[in-house]
Nucleic acid binder design. Structure first.
Lengths: 242, 242
DNA sequence: CTTAGGTACTTGACCTATCAAGTGGGCTCT
DNA sequence: AGAGCCCACTTGATAGGTCAAGTACCTAAG
């Protein structure tokens, strides 16, 4: 059986037009061929052409003006799919990233984490902390904090690297579903232990990213803390302006 | 003449369904009425229903599964319109935010700024630096760096507060259009001068946000540097998870 | 020469269809 | 009773249209 699924026509058209824009064939500011011209050239119907152009507009490649036509803007500044810090640690198996398991166990959550998880101050929570290495050097300390009732009946409490993502694990074992993440970014000086673990020079601050994963009802499921030496790592982003 | 333009049907449908989700009429996790049911209830055609549901899916209100139906996720966690740090200083007039003009003039751009603006190291650029106060206390140092060729023929070089946004000013005077912003976030220790201006306690790092405004062709127009004491200010964000 | 109107072309918003693909329940046959 | 098949219902993709609204250009009337 040949099950080579071909992408839908409108997606093919999106791809073709993106290539023409990137190659400079359709330079920024120029007028895109009209709907009728695209219908003729690609041999598809108008709804298909319109669907492709809608995708391109929503992704920021082009903008349209009724009565005039559609204008090329150029490759959008990473409109979508930006890698959020910490997000990888929620979905990817631990075995995917080289690193060392620093701490696994139940202990009193710091104030900030307790607040993020909606727990009372000084309540106990489950911690899973890893030192991530990049290019053979320690790069980040990633801490996952989970309320005790979330970890019940899971394998997260083992001191072994998980070969399944946290997200998948919790979904299958507990039936909880990740819905959105609330993110906070701040900076502080490292503790002496953190400075040693990350091999940081003196007087260098830490960039700290806190992500709280919640389900659709707003209940906090996991808090992720990512600590990065600010002299080596930066957070990057880009977004279009209205 | 009654020229009260009514919103298109699909937009009305989007609004109606959003209200039902927010009111709890369609609780999260529940199954939305099928396309055919919505066609009957609202008396519209299938493409109209599908268009509305596509908008809702792209905004994160619902998710769809072929063969089963569409499931309610709930109001998306500020999928759009999050206030970006530094963005306000590009559009709002300076007179809108209380603050003190620290520096205005042409001087050698720091390495980082020169790189962001695409200038050679140690080139001169125009600087406009302000100390922003919030609740009567110094809160942020905002620096706008502009290449000299961008400031030519503008009023930006005056030492007076501008009663027009930078963006509007550049658009009308120079015809340049802001297209997108590239953002970098890092942290560092304040200089003694910065620490004094911001009234920072000892051993507290600065959270630094660098935004580079570019036009559609990728030419850098403005670089914004926002310096915040990390003990008082944090960056917040939220995003849905696939 | 200037202006008003018409016309052609564009995108936006709909409509009625058809086929494909995925899901789940019920029916039938063993 | 159990296994397997079929059918109904769902969303996804695509085709063929119509009408409205906005823009640009040309032309004819003043």
């Amino acid at each position: 059986m040949s099950l080579e699924s071909v992408p839908p026509k409108y997606a093919q058209l999106v791809h073709a037009l993106q290539r023409r824009i990137e190659s400079g064939d359709y330079p920024p500011g120029s007028l895109l061929p009209s709907e009728n011209q695209l219908i003729q050239e690609f041999g598809v119907s108008r709804p298909t052409v319109v669907a492709a152009l809608r995708v391109l507009r929503e992704q920021g490649w082009i903008e349209s003006q009724q009565g005039k036509g559609r204008f090329v803007r150029g490759r959008p500044a990473r409109s979508t799919d930006r890698p959020r810090p910490g997000q990888a640690y929620l979905t990817a198996p631990e075995s995917d990233t080289p690193g060392e398991l620093l701490e696994v166990g139940v202990l009193a959550a710091p104030n900030r984490v307790a607040t993020l998880l909606g727990l009372e101050a000084k309540s106990k929570a489950f911690l899973r902390r890893r030192l991530i290495a990049r290019d053979g050097e320690p790069a980040e300390i990633v801490s996952l904090w989970l309320p005790l009732e979330v970890t019940e009946g899971t394998d997260l409490t083992t001191a072994m690297p998980l070969d399944e993502g946290i997200r998948e694990h919790l979904q299958t074992r507990k039936g909880v579903r990740f819905d959105h993440v609330a993110e906070q970014i701040t900076a502080r000086m490292p503790t002496t232990q953190e400075g040693r673990q990350l091999g940081m020079p003196r007087n260098t601050p830490l960039l700290a990213v806190y992500g709280t994963v919640k389900d659709a009802s707003g209940r906090a499921l996991v808090a992720v803390e990512v600590l990065m030496p600010a002299d080596r790592h930066e957070l990057e982003d880009a977004y279009p302006i209205g």
